[in-house]
Computed example of a mutant assay.
Amino acid sequence: MDANLIAQTCNQTPYPNLCVSTLQSDPRSAKADVKGLGIIMVDAVKAKAHEANLRVEELVDKDPGNVALQDCRFNYDDIFQLDIPQAVEAFGKDDYKSAELGMTNVVANEDSCERRFPGGSPFKDESQALHDVAYVAAAIAKVLRS
Rank of each mutant, 00 (worst) to 15 (best):
K124R: 10
D77G: 11
N75S: 14
K93R: 14
D94Q: 13
E100Y: 00
Q86D: 02
L18D: 14
V56T: 04
D26L: 11
H131A: 05
V88N: 05
G65A: 12
T104M: 02
A52V: 05
I6L: 06
A139L: 00
S25V: 09
R73N: 15
I39W: 01
S29K: 05
G36Q: 12
A99P: 02
V42C: 05
S121G: 07
V136S: 03
C113H: 08
V143Q: 01
V133G: 08
M1L: 15
A139Q: 07
A47K: 13
V56I: 15
R28D: 08
D2V: 11
K48F: 08
N66W: 06
Y76M: 15
R145W: 06
V88C: 00
V106K: 04
R73Y: 11
I84L: 04
G119I: 09
L101I: 13
R116Y: 08
G65Q: 13
E114P: 03
F123N: 05
L18E: 13
E89Q: 11
L54A: 11
A137P: 00
A134T: 08
A108H: 10
A32N: 10
K93A: 12
V106D: 02
Q128M: 14
Q128I: 14
P16R: 03
Q12N: 01
C19V: 04
D95Q: 05
A32Q: 07
P118N: 10
C10V: 00
L5N: 03
K31T: 15
D125L: 15
L23K: 04
K62L: 12
C10Q: 07
K142V: 08
S21F: 00
E110W: 09
V20P: 04
K93D: 09
I40R: 08
I6S: 01
P85I: 02
K97N: 02
G38T: 07
Q81A: 13
C10R: 02
F74V: 12
L37F: 03
T104R: 04
A3T: 14
T13S: 07
A90W: 01
A137E: 01
A30S: 10
D111K: 04
D111R: 09
D83K: 05
V67S: 12
A90H: 01
Q8A: 06
H131W: 04
D43G: 15
S25E: 11
S21L: 08
R115K: 15
V60P: 03
R145H: 06
